[in-house]
Design a protein around this nucleic acid. Structure first.
Length: 832
RNA sequence: GCCGGAGUGGCGGAAUGGCAUACGCGAUCGACUCAAAAUCGAUUGUCCGAAAGGGCAUGUGGGUUCGACUCCCACCUCCGGCACCA
């Protein structure tokens, strides 16, 4: 007898899907578009094409493909596309080292990804394929940039960027590892340069609030909330009377205003020079500021760092009591957050307390727990419930939470402050002084200034250059012919923007382009988008929980505001998958512990490899790869294949009716029940958040049951029918994860294609066998099991339970005070 | 420090408050074979016991309940995110 040959089977079905374009789905208005079906947009995060796909790709696309198949078989019109996030640093660094054009190495990588995805049998609509580095795609990335620019959502401003002094280049954030350049290890410096930003902070509140409307895991939502970092409080104005300068500060604790004993500015604060002029403290302040500016963010934010600072020789007025408090400059105050200045309340803020201690400044307690059980000499007071204000003028005795409202109201009346909200989120810096990215479609004209490239001149194509290495400016700057252009407004001489965009821009809208991928006249047709968006199920690694997912949400909202789109959230549901490790460690080429999926696909077939990565544990969790485990999955695939073979040979193709008839008894009925149980179990595991590991184990149980009873069923028409039904169902269920084997076995037994069949429904009536086994407990401890006919009434089951010899032993000399009966499950006799 | 998640056999992991350890791996034994592989079948938490049987086990300690891996309280450990964020 021949044996399971996954490679032959898989090739055969892949050819069918390829030649029949099985997974392509038309858009509205195109032939074959079925308006009667509900739509389902199933999307896995698009891969960055580099080298060969790794095991993580296998996992994401195995999960996504299972979802796509399931949705199709449940009557949905499913869009399941694929593309490549092709701009980016690895290809560029490779080019710098070898001189190979990034376009060529990227094309090679894409080709190998395409080959692998087909080899894995993923049900992709290839007609919608795209790559973000193609001008046909990035012209629309540029178009979106221009739309944002028109709206004021893209703007240019001077900003501090990461600079590697040795490589003489600006670095992307992700190239800075622990404050050092990832390539040469040199400590990174900050430099002020003009940069392009997207005004994502305008959307902070909506990005936060709309998290409530989407089905994402709490974990990811929390990460986004942390990142946005919304704080409620008040903006309070402290005035330097001598110079007539107002210093607003943001505080979450306006209730502690009476405890402010000094005032601190960030070293970058623009008013410092003016403040210090004429005080005699100029030299000391300048030294301190310069030193602070030279230090890396890493150094400045180091834990347990001593508080340092210098007095400015000026004071500001505390608006609540008119007190003059001294001003300092210190690097523990950050220019990027709030207003770059803080009111210091050392009794109630740990950092202020440390500074006050170091500089011997007064510490004044203004909030206390209601019971007052704080030692008289305790300087720093932990925040606690129901605190009450002390020593706070007319607010003394007020509860702290009320005082926040009251003091803010009082300030507002006096024009000295107002309620305010502050965010941790910063605007998105998208400029990259890099070659391999989407050019920013902007021209600088001496006369007209910053000028947008007109839409009809898009795309601004990436020029050819000799040297890909950045040397303090973008490599594009070397393409003189390209840089020199004429102003679209006045026709005069102008120069092109030479920076490219952060690659996260490219991937912030690709899911929109998939909907209308071949549209040459526009980025998309709004009606087409309406037919597909939003993505119903997004699937990807948790490493993108913040950046990519935040940026894509921002784009969607901004485009909706521009009236180009009808949805506010791009991804209705998100499923994040865990990492696959090897011996508990992250896989990497440098560690030499990487598992190449192609090896396993080659050896055991794609069905085995795909099913294994799903079976290894809940897909949302990290899981450790085991070679033995793969073999186990291969054994199961072979077992199912052999069962299909044998059942097809030894039983007659019989009517479906025969199988579902109630003629089945004994083993046949048990197998029938197991079959319906498996259908129900796999369906529930799917609905319950993609519990594929247990879904697959349910199919294993079904196959085990078929093996157990098959020899007693062969030859009996009802038995044959049940075996056929059980085996075909196992194939049908497993086809979500092992589409080739599923199609093969199903076809052998039924003659039809499994993916064209509706998802099976469990018949509740067939779920039960002839008998039920009851667990019998005495005082909650299991003492016996009794088997009774399915419909035995409660009273009878209890009588039988009490008659059991094993139970009797534990009832001896006791009184049964209570009988607990759980239908179909157990009897618990409570005795005294 | 704040927020989120998780602690179950030798291992990966199962269990709407109802038979803890499904399924798989590994291990042991048996069948088939001249033999091996493959395959099929059986056993496999731990302790006491020849066995029948019993005790103990889901990070720790309490609680609720007829009954708790599951719910509540306190704690320990690990993983992830944020963090001189005012």
């Amino acid at each position: 007898m021949s044996s399971y040959d996954p490679n032959a089977i898989e090739r055969r079905w892949q050819e069918v899907w390829e030649s029949e374009r099985t997974w392509e789905v038309p858009n509205p208005g195109q032939p074959g578009f079925d308006e009667s079906k509900p739509k389902s947009y199933v999307l896995e995060m698009l891969p960055y094409p580099s080298g060969e796909p790794h095991i993580g790709h296998l996992k994401v696309y195995s999960v996504g493909d299972a979802v796509a198949h399931y949705q199709r078989r449940n009557g949905f019109r499913v869009i399941h596309p694929m593309g490549y996030d092709a701009f980016g640093l690895p290809a560029e660094n490779h080019a710098i080292q070898t001189g190979e054009h990034p376009r060529d190495s990227t094309a090679a990588a894409i080709a190998s990804f395409q080959r692998q995805f087909r080899r894995w049998g993923v049900s992709i609509d290839w007609s919608r394929e795209l790559s973000t580095h193609e001008p046909a795609y990035y012209r629309w990335t540029q178009w979106i940039f221009l739309k944002l620019f028109e709206r004021g959502l893209a703007y240019r401003q001077e900003a501090a960027v990461k600079w590697c002094p040795k490589d003489a280049t600006v670095l992307a954030n992700e190239q800075v590892v622990d404050g050092r350049c990832e390539r040469c290890g040199t400590e990174v410096e900050a430099r002020q340069l003009e940069q392009w930003f997207f005004r994502i902070t305008d959307y902070a509140d909506r990005l936060l609030k709309d998290l409530e409307s989407i089905e994402w895991s709490e974990h990811v939502k929390t990460m986004q909330r942390n990142w946005i970092g919304r704080s409620e409080g008040a903006e309070v104005v402290f005035r330097c009377e001598e110079l007539g300068i107002d210093f607003p500060v943001f505080t979450t604790r306006p209730d502690t205003l009476f405890g402010a004993t000094f005032f601190v500015l960030a070293p970058e604060h623009p008013a410092i020079e003016r403040l210090v002029a004429g005080t005699g403290a100029e030299a000391g302040v300048r030294d301190y500021v310069n030193k602070a500016l030279r230090e890396s963010t890493e150094e400045r934010s180091a834990e347990d760092r001593e508080k340092t600072g210098v007095p400015l020789g000026r004071t500001v007025t505390n608006p609540v009591n008119g007190e003059q408090i001294p001003m300092f400059v210190s690097d523990y105050v950050l220019m990027e957050y709030g207003t770059g200045a803080v009111m210091a309340v050392p009794a109630h803020d740990q950092r202020d307390y440390e500074f006050a201690t170091a500089f011997d400044l007064p510490i004044r307690r203004v909030v206390e727990p209601p019971d007052g059980d704080v030692p008289e000499d305790a300087a720093y007071v932990e925040h606690s419930e129901d605190e009450v204000l002390v020593d706070s003028g007319s607010f003394t005795g007020v509860r702290a939470d009320e005082a926040i409202q009251k003091i803010t109201g009082w300030l507002e009346e006096k024009g000295l402050g107002k309620a305010a909200v502050s965010y941790r989120l910063r605007d998105w810096l998208i400029s990259r002084q890099r070659y391999w990215g989407c050019p920013i479609p902007i021209v600088y004209c001496e006369k007209c200034g910053i000028v947008a490239v007109p839409e009809d001149q898009l795309p601004v194509e990436l020029p050819e250059v000799e040297d890909y290495a950045p040397k303090g400016r973008s490599p594009l700057a070397a393409a003189e012919d390209w840089v020199a252009t004429e102003c679209p407004q006045c026709g005069g001489a102008a120069r092109r923007e030479t920076d490219t965009m952060d690659t996260f821009v490219d991937s912030s809208w690709y899911f929109l382009r998939y909907c209308d991928a071949s549209n040459e006249a526009a980025a998309w047709d709004r009606d087409v988008l309406r037919a597909w968006m939003p993505v119903d199920q997004y699937i990807g690694g948790v490493e993108h929980a913040i950046l990519h997912l935040m940026y894509a949400r921002f784009f969607t909202k901004a485009l909706a505001d521009l009236d180009l789109l009808d949805v506010e959230e791009p991804f209705q549901a998100l499923f994040t998958i865990g990492m696959i490790t090897r011996d508990g460690a992250k896989m990497s080429k440098s560690k030499g512990n990487a598992v190449d999926p192609a090896d396993y696909v080659e050896r055991y077939g794609a069905d085995t490899a795909r099913s294994y990565v799903l079976f290894i544990g809940p897909p949302s969790q990290d899981a450790d790869w085991s070679d033995d485990g793969v073999e186990g999955m291969h054994r199961f695939m072979s077992r199912l294949w052999r069962l299909g073979r044998e059942v097809a040979e030894r039983t007659e193709a019989s009517d479906e009716q025969l199988a579902t008839s109630n003629g089945a008894t004994g083993d046949a009925k048990a197998l029938l029940a197991k079959t319906h149980w498996a259908i129900d179990k796999v369906t529930r595991d799917f609905e319950r958040g993609f519990q594929f590991n247990t879904a697959i184990s349910a199919v294993m149980e079904l196959v085990n049951e078929a093996y157990r009873c098959k020899d007693s069923l062969y030859g009996d028409p009802v038995g044959d029918a049940c075996l056929r039904f059980a085996t075909a169902t196992a194939a049908s269920l497993i086809s979500l994860f092992a589409p080739h084997l599923g199609a093969e076995v199903y076809e052998q037994l039924t003659g039809v294609r499994v993916w064209e069949q509706p998802w099976p429904k469990a018949d509740p009536a067939a779920l039960s066998a002839d008998t039920i086994i009851y667990a019998v407990q005495v005082n909650g401890k299991l003492r016996d099991r009794i088997e009774v006919p399915v419909d035995t009434p409660k009273d009878e089951v209890i009588i039988l339970a009490r008659q059991s010899e094993k139970v009797q032993r534990h009832l001896d000399g006791t009184v049964v005070v209570k009988e607990i009966f759980v239908p179909g499950k157990l009897v618990n006799l409570v005795v005294r």
